[in-house]
Simulated scan of single mutants.
Amino acid sequence: MVIYIDILLIENFIINLFLLLITLKALRYKYYKTVYIASIVGSLYTLVLFMDNKILASLPFKIIVVLLMVMISTKNYKLLKNIKSTIAFIIMSFTLCGFSFAFSMIDNYYSIFSDFTINDYSIKYLLISIMGLYVVIVRVIDYLRDRALINNFIYDIEISNEKNTLFIKGLLDTGNALREPVTNLPCIIIESTFLENFNIKSNEEFSIPYRTIGEDGNLKGFKTNTVRIRGEDEEWKVVEVILCKCKNKLSKENEFNALLSRGVI
């Protein structure tokens, strides 16, 4: 029997990814892109079949590998939660094995008076194709859901003074309650590169104290003539706010360049 290692690894990668996704979906656990790394780890573990090592092929070691895959996928290190996920993964694996065995009996003769041998399994690639299709559909649905959620919180922002007018996208940060303490005006944090044309005198600047987990400090802010915001399918609304500069990039994909505190809306 000829075994192609590359095909074996690819098939096991798809199966592991399929099992991880349905397991975490069933448990309603959040997973990350590292689920692909976890699937690769599980796929590489298949190479143990070619080694004469009873320890690596033992049941406890298999459970450890599954536990590692779950931890990589969820980035969660709570023992009880990971044990629950591991048990669910194993149950899903046994269920899939049962289905696979049932389908194998279609292509292979079975008799209680003789040993059962799988000589042909033409439906295998159909099952793997279905798993691959499920993985693609889940990824597309997750992407569209995330995009729809983000779009609901994206606002158009127009900032203008005597000389300049700026149009940018801003994300409403519902957990952000930043306000300037004297005027009690809400703040909009904007990437500093977009405010280079707005010349602000030092006596016109505001100092806004902020505090986050493990960090605190002061932001420099200013007011300008007109700031308008507009949500999706909404009319422009003039708001009175303090604009704060931020040196960091707010979105890796450049989907927005400002953060609105909840007091702006």
Rank of each mutant, 00 (worst) to 15 (best):
I168T: 01
T193V: 10
I7W: 04
I168R: 05
T224G: 05
I190T: 02
I208Y: 12
V227N: 10
I118N: 11
K81M: 08
L27N: 10
P186T: 11
S39L: 10
L17F: 10
L27V: 08
T74H: 09
A26S: 15
I3H: 07
K220D: 06
E180N: 05
F94E: 06
F167D: 02
P181Y: 04
D107I: 08
L166G: 00
N254Q: 11
N161W: 01
A26G: 10
G231N: 01
A57V: 02
L243Q: 03
T23S: 14
F103A: 14
G217P: 06
V48W: 05
V227M: 03
K30S: 13
K62E: 04
L59M: 15
N203W: 01
N164Q: 03
L243K: 00
I72T: 09
I14D: 08
Y29S: 11
N151R: 12
L144G: 00
V48I: 14
I91D: 07
V264T: 00
R147F: 04
S39E: 10
K124Q: 12
D6K: 04
I112P: 08
A258L: 00
L250W: 03
R139L: 05
V41N: 08
L21V: 13
F103M: 15
D156K: 14
I157W: 00
V136D: 01
T212L: 14
K201Q: 14
S73G: 08
L250E: 01
A102S: 14
F198I: 06
E240K: 14
G132E: 04
L19M: 12
M1R: 07
V182K: 13
C187N: 09
L172M: 09
L21I: 15
V182T: 13
E180D: 14
E253A: 12
N108M: 05
I168N: 00
K220W: 02
E11N: 15
L96W: 12
L149S: 11
N152T: 05
